[in-house]
Design a protein around this nucleic acid. Structure first.
Length: 265
DNA sequence: CATTGTCCCTGGAAGC
DNA sequence: TGCTTCCAGGGACAAT
């Protein structure tokens, strides 16, 4: 399930292959995956367009083109690959013969072709790895919020790019119970959480992303981040710090893993 | 605006 | 064994 580190890894893998290249042929296999404009206009609008830069905003991958942007969201099971894959929903050929395949088993992901990427990613919160994401900025966004901190960390308008796995890892690293009210965290706890968020995301990028489900890098290889997970998706295992069994509890319908001893309510 | 619930989608797991 | 049901969860959207 691609979150910020997985999308960043895909971006870093693909950037040297696509930057400066031109789309020469686009095939839409599953029209429903094209969110804007119509599949036919998407194909026509993309062909001939040059990729100036490959970027990322939150969990969105952004192809910055000459006069437009193609935005990709992988949701749960989407991926971009350099060779044919099962469940390919769209494919792209570049002017040097490179091919890209957008595959997505569950069809939840989407593609957009827009004049300005902000039309799709405009409502996202701050980038957690940018300098403007400070402990104070996080505290300000949590102020007055009564929802469980776990639910708030998943709000992309509050903070861009954190998903279920990294939210659990960050809360564990900060020693904060997932059901604590966001607005009730002390300044010290907010600072610890801020540092933990950045640390787990940077570790994720360093280790190629977490292949707990269908996530693979563009060349088909798996990431290694999940090998280092402390609690996320470790159902039935024990806390690496105190050996207490890891608990799983649904928070707003999302499976949440934590250590009841290291993360007290 | 804040909060909560529903829906989309498919394959693997669990249950009968 | 074979069938049915449940569940995973990002995020848009609707309801309150």
């Amino acid at each position: 399930m691609p979150e910020l580190p997985e999308v960043e890894t895909i971006k870093n893998d693909l950037a040297p292959l696509v930057e400066g290249r031109r789309f020469v042929e686009v095939e839409v296999v599953e029209p429903a995956c094209v969110r804007h404009p119509s599949p036919e206009d998407f194909r026509r609008g993309l062909e001939g367009r040059q990729v100036l830069r490959l970027g990322r905003r939150g969990k969105y991958l952004v192809f910055i083109l000459d006069g437009a942007a193609m935005v990709v969201h992988l949701k749960m099971t989407g991926g971009l690959f350099l060779s044919p894959r099962p469940a390919t929903r769209a494919s792209f050929r570049l002017d040097d013969g490179t091919r890209l395949y957008f595959a997505d088993r569950r069809k939840l992901g989407g593609l957009w072709l827009v004049a300005d990427a902000a039309e799709v990613v405009g409502d996202l919160g701050p980038e957690p790895l940018e300098p403007d994401f400070t402990p104070q900025a996080l505290a300000e966004r949590l102020r007055g919020r009564k929802s469980p901190i776990k639910a708030l960390l998943l709000e992309q308008s509050l903070l861009a790019g954190v998903g279920n796995m990294y939210a659990d890892e960050a809360l564990f690293a900060a020693g904060i119970h997932p059901l604590r009210r966001g607005g009730d965290l002390s300044p010290q706890e907010v600072e610890a959480l801020h540092g933990a968020i950045r640390q787990v995301l940077l570790t994720g990028i360093d280790t190629g992303g977490a292949s707990v489900d269908t996530y693979r890098r563009p060349d088909g290889s798996a990431g290694h981040t999940h090998d280092g997970f402390q609690v996320a998706h470790r159902r039935g295992e024990v806390c690496p710090c105190c050996s207490t069994p890891i608990q799983r509890l649904p928070v707003r319908g999302r499976g949440t893993y934590f250590c009841p001893r290291c993360q007290k309510l």
